[in-house]
């Protein structure tokens, strides 16, 4: 199974990296870089200064934390997971190339796992460098030290990779199970997760964002700012160990179920 999955990974990685979807991915991952550059240019060209929060001037580190929370954690990671994860098999079915993979001596489940691994590497290769670039542009603002904050950057990168793995696996399951997987994925991302997180109780345990936010090394933005006030609605954060174990569990179980669904489902191609 693993050898077969690696062969599919090998075949799919190049296809995925040079697909039209990757242009969208690059634009999405480039968004925070553009924003960081914009902030930097504005501060260079105008006498404007970083905003005051709680009587103190905001630092570049805090801005980086805000970008991680708001852009990467709440938007880029789940959206990428939804767009890529749901299409792992659906794209091959739509292009009618799935026949070539399903009539080879490899288990169908391995096709899904191999494509998932290709998705993971492809998105990691694009998202993590984007976060690193943003870090180098933003952190020095207001006198922040790149070296001092470097360990927290590594935690951020780890969190992003874990997030891509968990969302990708969950949406791979959605893609292998539902007829309109992208719609289901977007409803989960923009409806279910933010909706459930603001309510007290146990429903939030049925989200990925709940566990993922425990891995963010930056403090959640302060509640006195508007953005911080919104984020405080989600401020129940589980212990790190629980989060890691839960995310690993979600990833493995979702991937196993997706692989099972691919194994048993018939894929009828349009004539």
């Amino acid at each position: 199974m693993i050898t077969s999955a690696l062969r599919i990974f090998d075949l799919s990685l190049g296809q995925m990296l040079w697909s039209r979807r990757s242009v969208f991915l690059a634009l999405l991952a480039g968004g925070p870089v553009g924003l960081a550059l914009g902030i930097r240019v504005i501060l260079l060209l105008t006498p404007a200064q970083l905003p005051m929060v709680n009587g103190a001037r905001m630092s570049g580190t805090a801005i980086f934390g805000l970008i991680i929370w708001l852009l990467y954690l709440r938007f880029i990671i789940p959206v990428l997971g939804a767009f890529y994860g749901t299409s792992l098999i659906a794209d091959e079915v739509e292009d009618k190339t799935i026949t070539y993979l399903f009539t080879r001596p490899i288990p169908r489940g391995a096709v899904l796992v191999g494509k998932y691994l290709a998705y993971l590497l492809c998105t990691i290769l694009l998202v993590l460098p984007s976060a690193v670039i943003v870090y180098f542009i933003v952190t020095p603002l207001g006198g922040g030290s790149i070296g001092e904050q470097f360990p927290s950057l590594l935690s951020d990168l780890g969190m992003l990779a874990v997030g891509l793995a968990a969302y990708g696996a969950l949406f791979a399951l959605v893609g292998a199970t539902f007829k309109r997987p992208l719609v289901v994925g977007l409803v989960f991302t923009f409806g279910w997760e933010p909706g459930v997180l603001i309510f007290p109780g146990y429903l939030k345990h049925a989200t990925i964002a709940f566990y993922l936010q425990a891995l963010v090394p930056h403090a959640m933005p302060n509640e006195e700012s508007v953005v911080g006030g919104i984020l405080q609605l989600f401020n129940e954060i589980p212990p790190l160990e629980t989060s890691l174990a839960s995310l690993a569990g979600i990833t493995l179980v979702a991937l196993w179920l997706a692989s099972r669904a691919t194994q048993t489902r018939e894929f009828v191609l349009d004539q």
Binding site: T99, T103, P105
Partner: peptide, 15 residues
């Protein structure tokens, strides 16, 4: 799937 070692398939679709 192991049977596909012994089978070659040329599908109709131009994909």
């Amino acid at each position: 799937p192991s049977l596909y070692f012994r089978i070659g398939f040329c599908p109709e679709q131009d994909a």
